[in-house]
Simulated assay, not measured.
Amino acid sequence: MNRVGFIGLGSQGGPMAERILAAGYPLTVWARRSEVAEDLAAKGADVAGSIAELGADCDHVGVCVVNDDDVASVCEQLIPAMRSGSLIVIHSTVLPETCQGLARRCAAHGIDLIDAPVSGGGAGAAAGTLTVMCGGAADAFAAARPVLDTFAELVVLLGEVGAGQRAKIVNNALLAANMGLAQAALQAGDALDLDRGALADLIKASSGRSFGFEVFARLPHPRDFAVGAPLLVKDVGLLKTTLPDDAGAEALRAAADPFLSAATGGPDATEYRP
Rank of each mutant, 00 (worst) to 15 (best):
A173L: 06
A116N: 06
P26M: 00
V29S: 03
D112M: 08
A144L: 02
P26R: 03
C106M: 04
D235C: 11
Q183M: 14
S34F: 13
S261K: 04
I7H: 02
D69K: 09
A251H: 02
E271M: 08
D46E: 15
V233I: 14
F225Q: 00
A182W: 04
R196L: 14
Q183F: 08
A56K: 04
D70H: 13
M179E: 03
A108S: 13
G164E: 09
R209A: 09
P258G: 00
C58Y: 14
L194R: 03
D46Q: 11
V236Y: 12
F225N: 01
A56P: 02
F151M: 09
A188C: 06
R33W: 07
L199T: 12
G266V: 03
P220G: 10
F6T: 00
V63M: 04
G189I: 06
N67M: 06
V161S: 03
S119N: 05
L40P: 12
W30S: 02
D246S: 13
L202S: 15
N178I: 02
D224G: 11
Q165H: 10
V29N: 03
G85Y: 12
G24W: 13
E18R: 15
D246K: 05
R253A: 14
A126N: 00
R273W: 03
G128Q: 00
C58S: 15
A191Y: 09
R209F: 04
A116Y: 01
D201N: 14
A138P: 11
I203G: 09
Q77C: 00
C58G: 12
K43P: 12
C106T: 07
N67H: 10
A81P: 08
K204M: 05
F216N: 07
P146E: 02
G180C: 02
V89G: 15
T270N: 06
